[in-house]
Design a binder for these strands. Structure first.
Length: 487
DNA sequence: GGTCAAGGCCAT
DNA sequence: ATGGCCTTGACC
């Protein structure tokens, strides 16, 4: 009795096609359009200790558009106010740090401009005190930094939660409420300035966007650039259109990688027919659900194998990652379907059929009832947050690229992809959410809940697997069978 | 009234 | 000329 698809084991799926290995990989490239490297990498809290982007000295606050030290603030002010002209005696590429910053004012001023200090923030009338038009920009930047801190906090919580394997109780109200002010490039003053030092900058500095982005070392400047390129964000709409210019390129790639539902449903019906033909009777409700889960799992593996970044990994690493996260991806797929397409009180099956949650609650055993209840609660949380298609696409990748999986050969690559996906998601939530400013943190917390739910689901299926109450010859069985070997 | 990013002052 | 500290004043 063979199922319609012959690729019923993970090894089988991998042996079906010849692996095309691409040695040239550069996941960073997609991000250069919207993110600077400093905006993307936040491996530890030390990175948040601010250093002056010009000389590396201790930052004393926002000055002329960015966070700088007191001395560079004074230097920039004197240069602009007094129309200074400097000459570099070297090749205009002097290194500027705390010890050398006095040596070449030409290169120091160049660096000031390159990192984003604004000429127009120096007042022509020399009026003291008050506030300038950069206020919202500073606020925006602070919100971004707060989000980064929250991200680190959430990541730590998630790691702790995963290690202890305890049920996660979220307390999202304890996370600082963040401001999310919008930056309008039209509000930025852009007076022409004819100071010699400024003209010298205009002549010598790179003007194309790519170079400007590479030079961009602070998020205020980056936000201004990004908005100048893609236009101000529309906070009210959360459309799915992949044409929308505000969706970072990488997320468009993710959306294109979605599993194909129609093929999946076709496979499910074929499997159910086979099951019926083999056993000469209609499959039980549990068997049907098991077949659906198995086929969904096949489609998830197929999706992963052909996905951006994942297909670049060595096959051994791909298998390790899939063995580690299959149940989480499975639960995520079921939950995201309920959030995006389901109805209250309903259970949207993978086959496209609609069930009732109350039926499950009244006919299932205690474990399944508990699973059902926790799953429903999580669906409700995602719905409250109005999590959209793009965000689920990112979450799928976050789960798949888990650098904490043991003995990964390409651990650093996996870690780098996860960090970049986190960055993309953070940027998206920050740009598209007007009310829930700690949206990203919420998503991280829900991810922990998803993880603990998947462990429960896996244990339940494992129990069923051991008791032999499940259809044979399928990928789900293989995953459950391998459970003890891989974990 | 507190905050904080402007400009100002002045010892080095 | 530099840079640490002080004063100012719009905005919250």
């Amino acid at each position: 009795c063979l199922p319609p698809e012959s690729k019923k084991s993970l090894a089988g799926i991998y042996s079906l096609r010849e692996e095309i290995r691409t040695e040239q990989r550069n996941p960073q490239i997609l991000f250069y359009m919207f993110f600077s490297s400093s905006d993307m990498n936040f491996p530890c809290e030390v990175d948040l200790e601010e250093q002056c982007p010009v000389c590396g000295d201790k930052v004393s606050g926002y000055h002329y558009g960015i966070l700088t030290c007191e001395s560079c603030k004074g230097f920039f002010k004197r240069t602009v106010q007094n129309n200074k002209t400097y000459v570099c005696v070297e090749n205009q590429q002097c290194k500027i740090d705390t010890s050398k910053r006095k040596r070449c004012p030409f290169c120091r001023f160049q660096k000031c401009l390159n990192v984003g200090m604004r000429l127009e923030a120096v007042r022509a009338d020399r009026m003291r005190g008050g506030r300038n038009k950069f206020g919202p920009m500073y606020k925006h930047d602070r919100a971004l930094k707060q989000q980064k801190k929250a991200l680190i906090q959430a990541r730590r919580l998630r790691i702790e939660s995963n290690q202890k394997d305890v049920t996660f109780t979220s307390n999202i109200h304890s996370i600082a409420i963040l401001h999310n002010t919008k930056l309008n490039p039209n509000q930025l003053p852009s007076q022409p300035c004819n100071s010699p030092a400024v003209l010298q900058h205009q002549i010598t500095s790179p003007t194309n966007w790519a170079m400007k982005l590479e030079n961009c070392s602070n998020s205020v400047e980056l936000a201004a650039l990004a908005e100048a390129i893609i236009g101000p964000h529309h906070t009210s709409s959360r459309s799915i259109s992949t044409q929308s210019p505000r969706i970072p390129q990488l997320e468009i790639e993710f959306l294109h990688c979605d599993p194909h539902d129609l093929q999946l449903q076709k496979n499910i019906f074929s499997c159910l027919q086979q099951e019926q033909a083999c056993r000469h009777r209609e499959p039980s409700t549990f068997s049907s659900v098991y077949v659906m889960a198995d086929q969904l799992l096949c489609s998830i593996v197929e999706w992963a194998r052909t996905s951006i970044f994942f297909k670049e990994l060595k096959v051994s690493d791909q298998m390790k990652l899939l063995h580690s996260c299959w149940s989480e991806l499975l639960v995520l797929e079921i939950i995201s379907r309920q959030v995006l397409y389901g109805t209250d009180g309903g259970l949207l099956l993978i086959s496209g059929q609609q069930g009732e949650l109350s039926y499950v609650a009244s006919h299932a055993g205690p474990t399944l009832v508990s699973l059902n209840q926790r799953g429903t609660e999580l669906v409700e949380k995602f719905r409250m947050l109005k999590v959209d298609h793009q965000e689920f696409a990112c979450i799928r990748f976050l789960i798949l690229f888990a650098p904490d999986v043991k003995e990964l050969e390409e651990h650093r690559f996996v870690e780098s992809v996860q960090q970049q996906v986190e960055g993309a998601l953070l940027k998206y939530t920050l740009a598209s959410s007007s009310q829930s400013c700690n949206r990203f943190t919420c998503l991280q917390l829900y991810l922990s809940e998803l993880h603990s739910l998947s462990i429960l689901a896996e244990d339940y299926l494992y129990y069923k697997h051991l008791s032999g109450e499940v259809p044979c010859n399928n990928l789900l069985n293989e995953m459950l069978h391998a459970k003890c070997c891989w974990t």
